[in-house]
């Protein structure tokens, strides 16, 4: 059984599906008995969604006009 510290280091990768089958089973064995690390997993998923949701940045109209006219001059 791995420690919380060892599990925590891999939880993001676990959430991303970036750990192999054997390592995944080791992490899930830890999660089955550790409520706190389950909370870590849920929070990692929240934070992942949070980052994706903050990905959009509007293109201000004045910047769009300047960049479009820059393209026209190429």
């Amino acid at each position: 059984m791995i420690s919380c510290s060892q599990a925590t280091k891999q939880l993001w990768d676990y959430v991303e599906g970036a750990v192999d089958g054997a390592q995944r089973r080791v992490i899930e064995e830890h999660l089955s008995v550790c409520r706190r690390c389950c909370g870590e997993v849920e929070f990692a998923e929240e934070l992942r969604g949070f980052l994706a949701a903050h990905g959009d940045t509007d293109l201000p109209e004045e910047v769009k006009v300047r960049l479009t006219s820059f393209l026209d001059e190429l």
């Binding site: 959009d56 940045t57 293109l59 910047v63 769009k64 960049l67 479009t68």
Partner: peptide
């Protein structure tokens, strides 16, 4: 078409 994404 890519300007909004590039700027973001």
């Amino acid at each position: 078409l890519q300007l909004p994404r590039l700027y973001a």
